[in-house]
Design a protein around this nucleic acid. Structure first.
Lengths: 129, 129
DNA sequence: CATAGGGGTTCCACTCACTGGAAGGTCAAT
DNA sequence: ATTGACCTTCCAGTGAGTGGAACCCCTATG
C-alpha cells in the first residue's frame, strides 16, 4: 500500500506519515521503486498514533505508548501513569484558559465597543503597576 | 535604564525583551556603549505586552492592540473585536480540552493500573476502525 | 594597575509537530 | 508520447521564545 492510501486509511496526511517515519515512530518497507510499502501493522500503528495525538498526547508520549502497546507483557500501571500525567496537564491547561476567559469576558462585557476611544480593555492592559 | 532592570520592572526576561525589539514591538534607544536605554514609555509598553501575552493574545494581536493603545483616537469597537475574537478561540480551546479530559478520565478510571497487561487505554487507542 | 564578577552585546541553534514548496522520479491511461 | 496523479527527497518556515557561545563593558577590590 502506498502512502496516499495509508493516509486515507489512518486519517493522516502523507506529510505527517513521512514525518513519523523520519522520527522513527514507524518503519514501513520500501518497494523496488523506492515507494514506501505499508503493511496492515503500519496502518494500525498510524491509526493508534492519530488517536493518541487527537487526545493531545505528545509525540514522546506516543512513542512510549506505542512501545507499551507492542509489549504484550506490559503492566497496565505503566500506561495509566502516562495517561494520568497527561490528564493532569490537560486539567492545568483548562484552568489556565478558564482564568483567561473570565478576565477577558469581563473586559469585553465592560467595553462599549462603539466609536468612542474609551476602552476598559486597553485601560486594564496598560494600567500602572 | 538597562535591559536587566527593565525586565525586572516589566516582569519579563531580558531575552524576551530583546526578542520583542527584534520583531519591532519596542524600539528602545541606545547608549553610547551600545547598551539598550529604556525610557518609561518602553517599560510601560513592555508591561502592556506582558499582560496581553498572559491573557493569551498572540504577538500579532499584541502588535495591533499596542497600535490601538497608542492611538488615542481609536474606536473601542476595534479593540473589542480583537478581544472577542480571542475570547472565542479560548472558548474553543477549552471545549476541545474538556472533550479530551472526559475521554481520558474515563479511560484512566477504567484502567486497573496494576501489574496485569490488560489496559483499556491501549485497547481504545488501538481499536480497529 | 590587574583582575574578577556581573552586567551587557550579537548571532546561531533548538524547541514542537508539523506544513508548504521546489525539483524531480514513477506509473497508468490515453 | 504525453498527460496527470502519484511518489521521492530536501529545505525552509511556523510561534514565541530559550539556551549557549564568544565577546565587550563597567565597577570594585587587592
Amino acid at each position: 500500500m502506498n502512502i496516499g492510501q495509508a493516509g486515507e486509511r489512518a486519517g493522516l496526511p502523507s506529510k505527517t506519515i513521512r514525518y513519523y517515519e523520519d522520527i522513527g515512530l514507524i518503519k514501513p518497507l520500501r518497494d523496488a521503486n523506492g515507494y514506501r510499502a505499508f503493511r496492515e501493522s503500519d496502518i494500525h500503528k498510524l491509526t493508534f498514533l492519530g488517536r493518541a495525538r487527537a487526545l493531545g498526547f505528545t509525540i514522546e508520549d506516543c512513542r512510549n505508548l506505542l512501545a507499551l502497546w507492542e509489549d504484550t507483557g506490559r503492566a497496565s500501571s505503566d500506561v495509566r501513569a502516562i495517561a494520568k500525567e497527561h490528564l493532569q496537564q490537560i486539567e492545568t491547561k483548562i484552568s489556565d484558559l478558564q482564568n483567561m476567559q473570565r478576565t477577558l469576558s469581563d473586559l469585553v462585557r465592560d467595553c462599549a465597543g462603539d466609536d468612542r476611544p474609551d476602552c476598559p480593555i486597553l485601560l486594564q492592559l496598560g494600567k500602572a503597576t
